[in-house]
Each structure stands twice: as C-alpha cells, then as structure tokens.
C-alpha cells in the first residue's frame, strides 16, 4: 500500500511592489489559519514535519509558502530581475505574507517564522497587528548579532555569493547555527535545502536579516500584544540570535512570552521537530483558546 502525506500544493499569483509573482505554497489541515515562513535562502520544505503533525493540523490550517526566488517560486516573469542585485527588504518581506493572506481570504491568520521569518514575526506584530491574531517569532530578535552584522554585505557576498565557492559551502556554513544534539539526518536535510538555493539569494536575504530588520527599543515597546500576541522561541545554540538577544526583545514587548529551547539551534523546526513541538503546542493551544 502506497504511503501518502496529507500535504497539498498549489500556485497563487501575488502582486507585490507592482510585480506579479507566481508563488508556490503547501497546506494541510483545517481551522485557524497558520502561515509559516522559511529561513533565509531556504524554502517551505523546512515545515514538512509540522505539516504532517495531526495534533496541529486537526485545529490549524497550516500554510507554508516559498518566497519568490526560493524553492518552487521562480523569479517573476515580466520583470528583468537579472539586471539588478537580489536583496530582500523589510517592506517586501512583510508584503508577501500579507498578500498571501488576502489571496487565500484568510481571517486574521497566525504567522510563525524562523530566523528571518522570526524577525518578520516581530515586524508584522509591530506594523500589521490588525491583520494577524498572533505571531510566533522563532529565533527572532530586535536585530541580528553584532558579530555577523559587522561583516557587512561585501563580506556576506564574499562567502555566500562567490563564484569561487559552490552552494555546497552554504549548506556547510549552516553548521554554525545547528545544535550538536540535533540528529544528523536532520542536519543533512537542512544543509541540502541550503545547497539547493538560487544564486545570490541567500546573501540577498541576509540584507533583510542583518540590516533592514532593526527594531528600536521604542518600536518594540509600542507593540500592542492585546491586538496581536507575540510569542518568542529561541534555541540555546543560535549564535545569530541568542536566547539573550531574544530575551532583550521579549522584555521590551509588554505581554509577550518567551521560551529558551535547550539543546536546539537556529533551525528548530527542522533540526528536531519532536523537541520543538513541545514548545509550539502550548502556544497554539493558547491562541486557539483566545480565538474561541
């Protein structure tokens, strides 16, 4: 007997900043909509374990999407994208889940993202609290760690967008973010996903991750968690946004909740989903309770 997963995929056309994009998304389950956003340079495959988690999908309609230039979302037709450097910006990062939510006619979805998606969860809670009932920032912070920010875009492109260096090395570099406790087959899967990325896309995504996402203490303090609850989850082994970095943000956002996840790294959703879900399920239960 053949084995199937409950995940269904499709394409939706989204117009962002006057450019029409053909965007791939996958979904499973029914109930409260939960949009999930992937990390820089990767794609929605990171959420395959979550999409197969019946304890979640019995209550939530989980929607994972590939940002344009990532995964199965090709660069846009009708736009000469090859004539300029790819860089992801904060406005565009926020626009894609907003456009997806509108296109799928979702009613105040929950947004959860990891890494740059985790940063985005904060930006959405700050700028679009009328559109989301809650956001979950996985590995997010006010800004990324200074040691990496100080490298600058030239240094980032030297490592991650360099003709002398293959995509294999981008996957290898992700070891810096991964917990030594994570099962090796999951580590290799994360690396594989990074090795599959488009040229220059990971480096360009880091423009948002390291520079365009930069939340001031005043902005963080102004986030209204009574309109859009903000949850923070950060792995012990994440050097880019350490638990201390996330805690700094959580302390500023009144009413937010923060958990440090021991023995997990920067990719907890894929590194070790069984451990990650122990933190996620109570959050989803709380959101469900408030939504009743």
């Amino acid at each position: 007997m053949a084995k199937f997963e409950p995940i269904k995929g499709g394409y939706v056309y989204l117009t962002v900043e006057d450019i029409e994009y053909r965007v791939y998304y996958e979904e499973a389950g029914q109930g409260i909509p939960l949009i999930v956003g992937h990390t820089a340079g990767s794609d929605g495959r990171q959420y395959r374990h979550l999409l197969n988690d019946e304890e979640v999908t019995s209550r939530y309609r989980v929607i994972s999407f590939d940002l344009p230039f990532h995964g199965k979302s090709l660069p846009p037709h009708g736009d000469k994208w090859w004539t300029r450097e790819y860089n992801m910006t904060k406005s565009r990062m926020m626009a894609f889940p907003n456009a997806l939510s509108e296109a799928l006619e979702l009613d105040r979805p929950v947004y959860m993202g990891s890494s740059m998606g985790g940063h985005l969860a904060i930006d959405l809670a700050s700028n679009f609290n009328d559109r989301y009932r809650a956001t979950i920032s996985v590995e997010g912070a006010l800004r990324s760690a200074a040691e990496y920010v100080e490298v600058g875009m030239d240094g980032i492109r030297r490592e991650f967008d360099n003709p002398n260096v293959s995509r294999t090395s981008t996957g290898a570099a992700m070891m810096l973010n991964i917990s030594p406790y994570s099962p090796e087959e999951n580590v290799r899967e994360i690396q594989w996903e990074y090795q599959c990325g488009g040229p220059g896309v990971f480096a360009g995504d880091l423009y948002y991750y390291y520079y365009d996402h930069n939340v001031s203490p005043e902005e963080a303090a102004a986030i209204d968690t009574s309109k859009c609850m903000l949850y923070f989850l950060t792995g012990e082994y994440d050097p880019n946004t350490s638990p201390a970095d996330t805690k700094e943000a959580a302390n500023l956002v009144k009413g937010s909740k923060f958990w440090e996840m021991p023995k997990l790294g920067h990719f907890p959703v894929t590194e070790n989903y069984d451990e990650f879900r122990k933190f996620l399920l109570p959050i989803l239960e709380e959101i469900e309770g408030k939504s009743a």
Binding site: E147, M175, L176, P180
Partner: peptide, 15 residues
C-alpha cells in the same frame, strides 16, 4: 557535545 557556540569552526570564530 560542544557548549554554545563551539558547535562549528565558524561559530567558534565569531563568538
């Protein structure tokens, strides 16, 4: 099981 952030050469370098 290296302690944070000795898990890789690059994180050991940065941190």
């Amino acid at each position: 099981y290296p302690r944070p952030f000795f898990q890789s050469l690059q994180s050991s370098s940065a941190k």
